[in-house]
Design a protein around this nucleic acid. Sequence first.
DNA 1: CCGCCTCGAGTTCT
DNA 2: CTCGAGGCGG
Length: 680
Amino acid sequence: MQDLLTVRERVEELRRQIEYHNYRYYVLDQPEISDAEYDRLMEELRRLEAEHPELASPDSPTQRVGAGPVETFGIVEHRLPLLSLANAFGPEALRAWHARVERLIGPRPLVYVLEPKVDGLAVSLVYEDGKLTVAATRGDGFRGENVTQNVRTIRSVPWTLRGRAPRYLEVRGEVYLSREAFKQINAERAAEGQPLFANPRNAAAGSLRQLDPRVTASRPLDIFIYQVGYYEDGALPRSHWEALQHLRELGFKINPANERLADFAAVVAACQRWEARREQFPYDIDGVVVKIDDLDLQAELGAVGREPRWAIAYKFAPTQATTRLLRIDVNVGRTGSINPFAVLEPVQVGGVVVKLASLHNEEDIRRKDIRVGDTVIVQRAGEVIPQVIGPVLSKRPPDAQPYQLPTRCPRCGAAIVKPPGEAMARCTGGVQCPAQLFELLKHFASRDAMDIDGLGEKLAAALLEAGLVRDVADLYYLRKEQLVPLERMGEKRAENLLRSIAASRERPLERLLYALGIRHVGAQTAALLARRFGSLDALRAASEAEIAAVEGVGPVIAASVRAWFDEPRNLAVLEKLRQAGVRFTQEAAPTAGLPLAGKTFVLTGRLERMTRLEAEARIKELGGTVSDTVSRKTDYLVVGAEPGSKLRRAQQLGTRLLDEAAFEALLAGHPLPEPAGPDA
DNA sequence: CCGCCTCGAGTTCT
DNA sequence: CTCGAGGCGG
């Protein structure tokens, strides 16, 4: 039995250490110890508290997991109201604000502080004698809800201030969720069939307003403190910037992206720069808050109504908008997949007018409960494809009906079936379906398949419309006089097209195999099959078991391939291709002994001196393979300008990175210097 | 049977 | 780029 005094000392020591490491990890983002070591400290503390209930304390870091639920939130009167900010939409409005400031205080040199306007929810935190006593939502600015128990679960909120704390301190901050955490929470909710949050802000608000703080604790909320509200006992610095530094010393998390600028032109430029790079913040921001730095000037400028004149919110173009869902139509894919899409009342979002948005599949529409006639939230951020996030239920027309997929294909009338357990419904019309034939023709001619230059969307439609092509083999029997009457088709273009078609007869087997559009056979699988069987006839003659025996091919793909070759219509197409002189064999392409044999590459970002396609071709020539996703099996990630998410994954996995110069050196046959060791 | 790794397929606007 | 799902190793 241990002496209780020493146990108490140990408990206090552990609490001190854990709070310190919390601070290093969550506030400074500079941990000093590993997660495992941290877990060990936490585990020991938990154990001691369990063994000695008399030592338990609501101030112990073990309580960050949250206490029991409450019935309702109390109301908190803010000692000083939380003001709102005037908005500036665009640089002109920002300049107008600035002109007014100068008019009021006369022209003199000004210093500005810029802070990302994080899209979360504002809270007020009160510290008395250095201890967190009350946390409240903004509410109407005068009175908010008491969410102290929930805010205490946020790891970057100090319970006790560091250093010499004022007797009474109130600070304001923004509670938010990172985009990553938001995605994770929604994925969990989707798995549990719960309604999804529309955006990180809603998720953060929902999390903070949980009656059960244990739920809040499970959500990785974070906070940035941006303002002193009320400060009693002790002198505050003269400037906002210094006040933020002071708050940082007290243990608060201050946004490291904040900037102090002394030139208004630079302020405007910075706002625009941040807008262009808003995706690079790990959390959503909807603008930039610009503040006059000097606190005396702030006081002089004062407020109009509830808006201070010394600050303004420069607002970015919104990435979400609401609009009406007019109709749900469906597209038919090459494989017969039925792909519903939303026809929207045109709406400006993310800098473009959106009229259409994909809806993926019936299941997705059901889960989001999207109905024709609904007002829906549409999102488009950066280059990302527009998405329908969900309905605004309060605006739903009373007669709106849940969406039902059509039972017959809108293009060919064949039955639509949805195999149990699969997400996608399919048209059963096969190549009889004009939509599927059209998609197949485009696919056949596409660059990774037979690469027929000049045969794109438009021409494929025209050839089908004119009845010149009923299957892909018909392409090789086209004559010039048939083509010329087509719209926008002269002698010259017809000749060029026929030449491209003729040239495509020489494509290697793997291209042809891919071009045929056999279900589950993409470029990669086509290459595996071509390499193993060497000729189309050998593959046609193979049994299902022989096909399934190929490395990387399993029962599903084997059955699909076998079924394709058992279809008389397909065999007829093959005979026509053969008659037309299309190559049915693989060229011998030995890869053994080449310098990059066995090496797997992934490319990300834009290369300066060659296209991505050229880079891929060079790697393959030298015996390497190119993959699409970074995994443990990836040997090199070639990093170009503006790399994507692959770079982060590669860094996590410790994959070797090559910049363009190093990549070129490798291609030129120069061995790479060994990677630096951990102690180098 | 589960969890990783890959591959296939589809998508908006300019 | 993202989702869904096939293949495969443990």
